[in-house]
Simulated scan of single mutants.
Amino acid sequence: MNIKIVVPKESTVFLDFYGVRGDENDNAYLKKNWTISFQGQKWTGRAVRIVKHLKKGTYTLTGSISEPQFSVIDAGYVDSGSSRFTSAKNKIKEGTGKWNYQTFKVKKKSHIQTVGRTFKYKSGIIKAGNNSHLSEAYKKSVPFYIQKKGKKGKYTAVTNKMSYTSKKINKHFALSPGTYRLKTKIPKGYVSQFMYVDTVYKNSYAVTKAKAKLLTQGKKKSNLFTDADKAKKTHYYKFKVSKNGKISMKLTTKNNSGRIKAAVYGKGMKTKKKTMEYSGTHYFNCKLKKGTYYIKVTKDTKKSTGLYSLTYSDKTESR
């Protein structure tokens, strides 16, 4: 196996190699070793990390493995200069133990998912096992905030303090148009790899019960609470039950800053409530009479941001 490595400018490049048997399931890691050769050095192990300082140019890496596999290769370079963050592109920064800032722009109301991990800044064999490519990760949490640039150029936090760990690397929030920065503190001797993906949402919503949006059985409705929305802002929905029986309302949230609250209510039923502080799924299982019922979803605090989705059916579910 020969792989060409293109280095766009002189920089420190990192390459991670690991494999699984046939798919990307973490429980199916290879039992046999890679053999990787690059720049006059050779490594043999179930997972290998290479960190090299290289000049601009194209390089060739050779590798072999003796078992059928789905090969996973993470690649990137440490960017010591630019502080700009671009959607869907890896950004890798070297740790100094001080606060680091990466700016990015949001053009339209969007759901933002960030992926971050912090790992040792050296070549070598990574400890084998589940999540082997993360086993050399920084064991403590790495703190970070999302800050927004104000009219006078000052940045202020629009999320609560969050953190990356070796196991929890995906974070979700929702942002309005503007200029932002990711503020994080990377420890010395490590590098942090970050990426964000933005998804624009244009879905309509109602802010009063009288204008509640109709939910149709089996069809999902999704929306966002962004940093620009005030605390306690509420979106209203309604659904119609055609005959007496049981229904299940599924609420899914993707949020890592603040809380999102929801309540299902209507004539003749006891109101059911749920607070979602982190990403997850909850089912409201109700026994209802024929009629119209409502669900309201509320941004609980100023720094609550995130995505929510609603679906209902006449089959009760649980998780």
Rank of each mutant, 00 (worst) to 15 (best):
M1D: 15
E10N: 10
S11V: 12
F14G: 12
D16L: 10
F17G: 00
R21K: 14
G22C: 09
D23Q: 12
N27I: 15
A28P: 14
L30T: 07
K31H: 14
N33M: 08
F38N: 03
G40A: 00
G40I: 11
Q41C: 03
Q41F: 10
A47S: 08
V48T: 10
K56L: 10
G57C: 02
G57W: 02
T60N: 09
P68A: 02
S71G: 15
D74H: 15
Y77L: 05
D79Y: 03
D79P: 09
S83N: 06
K89C: 03
E94F: 07
N100A: 07
N100I: 07
Y101R: 05
Y101Q: 01
Y101S: 12
Y101C: 05
V106K: 08
K108A: 09
K108D: 14
S110T: 09
I112M: 09
T114L: 04
T114R: 15
R117F: 13
Y121M: 11
G124V: 11
K127E: 07
K127P: 04
A128T: 02
G129I: 09
G129F: 07
N131R: 06
H133K: 06
S135F: 11
E136P: 12
E136N: 13
K139P: 14
K140R: 08
F144Q: 02
Y145G: 08
Q147M: 12
K148W: 15
K151G: 05
G153M: 04
A157N: 13
V158C: 07
T159P: 02
K161V: 03
M162F: 15
T165L: 08
S166C: 12
A174F: 15
S176N: 05
S176F: 07
T179L: 12
K185E: 08
K188T: 15
S192E: 05
S192W: 12
Y196Q: 13
T199Q: 03
K202G: 04
S204E: 01
Y205G: 06
T208W: 05
A212V: 09
L214H: 01
L215F: 09
T216L: 06
Q217S: 14
G218D: 01
K219Y: 15
K220C: 13
K220M: 11
F225D: 04
T226I: 05
A228N: 03
K232V: 15
T234E: 09
H235S: 08
Y237V: 10
K238I: 12
N244E: 05
K254D: 04
K254R: 13
S257R: 02
G258R: 02
R259N: 14
I260C: 02
K261Y: 04
A263G: 00
Y265E: 03
G268K: 00
M269W: 07
K274M: 01
M276K: 04
G280D: 15
G280H: 13
T281E: 08
K289E: 00
K289A: 02
K290T: 01
G291D: 14
T292H: 00
Y293F: 05
Y294K: 10
D300V: 11
T301S: 01
K303F: 10
K303Q: 11
S304I: 11
L310N: 00
T311A: 06
Y312N: 02
E317R: 03
E317P: 06
R319C: 02
R319D: 09
